[in-house]
Design a protein around this nucleic acid. Structure first.
Lengths: 153, 153
DNA sequence: GATGAAAAAATTTGCGG
DNA sequence: CCGCAAATTTTTTCATC
């Protein structure tokens, strides 16, 4: 969990394959890389231990679950010290799938999914803008997400 | 791949578990939900077929791979029609891990990972701002990402 | 460290309700 | 559509190099 492990080309190849498909059999990876399945297993375990691999997740298409609207909401706080309190309230809203503490235009930057525009409107007015430490918000509506990938290892 | 499958509570329970850990054994899920492993298998396959489950991915911690800097770059184009050409150039930059076509403040909104601030500076000046269809950019540096989750099914 | 075969575990299939 | 259980595949271990 806290080694500073330096990955080599084999690790890189394994990671790239597992980023695309976490269920790629180790025997398959072994064959592709000219090593034994045992070696693949050892490398994966090491990368888990080192915290390089944090988890394996099934990825769900939000649209298929009825979440048709994706947007970003930039938030400005009345005071910088209000950050923890606001974050706690955002955490309680399941539609807030990502939040970043940022410098630049906004104090907090969030990614949000809702079923439709009406639901976004309701969330914005009744849940977000009603948080008293929030001074102002700005909404960027996403019409399309043409790039969606993980960093190349 | 394009059925309109309406998920029930069992599907929801399976999805929630697999979003957290794609390797949860079906036997475990079966026990938790009081059904047989075969049933879990059938449900997962159906959700894959319906496009609800798009993939299973190993998730990598960018910081452990040396990507210390996370930021967003909002891009404004000279002309709306330049969108496809610019996108193609962004696609070729591996540091651009997400791109959104947005309304509001920016035309294209991107999420970017780099090794350090110098690398971000170089990317911005030499790769992004030098794309001729881009009129202006604005950078939001992320200092922390306190919320990072998938939508609850 | 890596190997590779053997043991253990999980997934997948198919018959029967 | 579900359950059960056998058949297959995958993961994991371990003695050895």
């Amino acid at each position: 969990m806290h080694d500073d492990y330096r990955i080599d080309n084999l690790d890189r190849s394994i990671l790239t394959a597992l980023q695309a498909d976490a269920r790629t059999p180790y025997a398959e990876l072994a064959k592709r890389n000219g090593v034994s399945p045992g070696t693949i297993h050892v490398r994966v375990e090491k990368m888990k231990q080192a915290g390089i691999i944090t988890s394996a997740q099934v990825v769900v298409d939000p649209k298929k679950l009825g979440y048709q609207v994706c947007c970003f909401i930039g938030i400005n706080l009345k005071a910088a010290g209000d950050y923890p309190a606001v974050l706690e309230k955002l955490q309680a809203l399941p539609q807030v799938v990502e939040a970043y503490y940022t410098t630049g235009h906004y104090s907090i930057f969030t990614k949000i999914l809702t079923h439709n525009i009406d639901a976004l409107h309701a969330l914005l007015v009744h849940e977000i803008q009603s948080i008293e430490q929030i001074q102002s918000t700005e909404t960027l509506l996403s019409l399309q997400q043409p790039i969606h990938r993980q960093i190349a290892p």
